[in-house]
Design a protein around this nucleic acid. Structure first.
Lengths: 145, 145
DNA sequence: GGACTGGGTTGCAATATGCAAGTGATTAGT
DNA sequence: ACTAATCACTTGCATATTGCAACCCAGTCC
């Protein structure tokens, strides 16, 4: 069912157009994929059951599909936990880390335009005063090279 | 079928969580919505038939649904064209203009991570050297206040 | 070895999407 | 003024994607 060896991270599929936004939307254009990345970036989550416990309530079949697609796209990687053979740990690749600015912009937009947002005021304040520092701090936590 | 008077732009619907990213995804989390915004922002398109002609080939029923949702969310507005009673002109609201940084980040990510991107090199270069100026130039074209 | 946990898969109903054709209000052509 | 186009949709229907609940199996705990 799944092609094992696809040496190139971003595999060639039928693309709707060469537009970079369309390209990004083919991967992130659904209600769940970016929430997984959010959990990794902002919540420090690493495991299936942690993503599954997020308050939006993703179905486990959808979650496993999205994790697989993110791995195929080269945005995240999975590793068996050496301390517990049942567990799988997911983490961001450099391509995933490069997504942080987009996620931060989207979060800021949402915080500013949702009248009932639960976004911490500190996030919005820090974004306004020191966007670059905010992004760098988040990225630093996820860099491994 | 459609509620006519909903005075508040961002109408209260069942929300999955208070998370600003989840909020944004409830509106933009699909393969087509942001493409409409892209056409407005980068291509200067304003009309149904122009969006419909985009190379990704959105179905007309989906397009009209997405335009309606964007209007309901207060991201775009529609106006009859005074020069031609058949035509409807769409344009960004301030909330739509505020989305430009997110779109620019997403486009940059896509351009850098799609090996077959058709994104103009000039866009990537300008983004790297003068992100703020690039965003300001785009925003200036769409501001009306 | 028996129960439990973690990370999934499977089957099926509900929902959303894609496609082709149609509609109704305007406008352009003669 | 009549006819043919154009524009912005809507409708109907086949297909694809989601949501939900139940199930599965390898690895751990006791």
């Amino acid at each position: 069912m799944q092609v094992i060896s696809e040496s190139c991270a971003m595999s060639r599929k039928k693309r709707r157009s060469g537009c970079p936004i369309s390209f990004a939307l083919e991967l992130f254009g659904d209600r769940w994929t970016l929430l997984v990345v959010r959990d990794l970036v902002f919540m420090g989550k690493r495991r299936f059951s942690e993503f599954s416990a997020s308050s939006e309530g993703v179905a486990t079949n959808v979650l496993s599909d999205r994790l697989r697609r993110l791995v195929e796209a080269g945005v995240i990687e999975s590793l068996g936990d050496p301390d517990d053979g049942r567990r799988v740990l997911y983490h961001l690749t450099p391509a995933g880390v490069a997504l942080i600015p987009t996620l931060v912009e989207l979060a800021n937009w949402g915080a500013l335009h949702d009248p009932d947002t639960a976004a911490p005021a500190e996030f919005v304040r820090r974004f306004a005063r020191d966007r670059a520092g905010l992004i760098e701090d988040l990225a630093a936590k996820h860099r491994r090279d």
